[in-house]
Amino acid sequence: MTDRHLTEEEIAIYAEAFKSGAKKKVPKHIRNHVKECNRCAEEVVAVEQAISQLDENNSSRSKSRKLTAVFWVPVAAGVTLLIGIGGYLLFYNQPDTSPVESREPVAAVDTISSGEKKPAADTFKMQDQKQETEKQEAREPSEVSSPSLQDKNLLAEAYKPHPALENLSSRFEKGEMRGSRFEIEVDNLIKVNARDTIVLRWKNPAEKELSLEVLDNQGNKVEEKTTTKETVRLKDDFDKGLYYWKLVDSDFNLLFCGKLRVE
């Protein structure tokens, strides 16, 4: 055994060869050192486990994206067509009701996986769009008719992302924070219409106590619930805007942070 410990690169060489089953390619002096040195052996195993985990994360993420895309693209096309026709029939001759453009960039994958997922009955119960428009007209005529510049500015403020929460949510989206392997069954970005029923879903077979917090884009708590179940129905009077929701276990471990866009 050599006197010095292996360098990080030597550890990396052995870990890679170990992972791919090509240990014989590792120089003999490195293999002999690892045979005798507990510290370096521990590092080789730890690095091999870490790179395997990283590969696993990357491959499962790309696989789920592929599957989501394959499944939702035809659905998205159909829904877009239906919304297009419905929208034309409903809003033809109506005053301009175009929503304030979002300042937040939305990734293509979100558009496919969450935007078009709305019609799925088990996730969000969509209300009849025509009925909704009629109700809205009756209750808030000023909002439906051309909104003032001030209203538009207020709405734009309501969709302005909260930097820290945005960052947190994005880390969950990238899979960087899914250490607890907690399985969430809704998309990272949920888009709903105001007054839609919002149901959040996850896997909790052990019925652990979980706390759910919904925060607005200023970081203020707007709803809080504790549950041992796998679904939570949120209140249905969210104002238009961007919200974030967090799921925390009884040890205060953050299990998930997602976004909720009420339009």
């Binding site: 690169e9 990396a12 060489i13 870990a15 890679e16 590092e43 690095v47 870490a50 790179i51 990283l54």
Partner: peptide
């Protein structure tokens, strides 16, 4: 000699 990501992991 090693993949840079593995190197950084180490």
């Amino acid at each position: 000699d090693a993949n840079p990501k593995t190197y950084l992991t180490a």
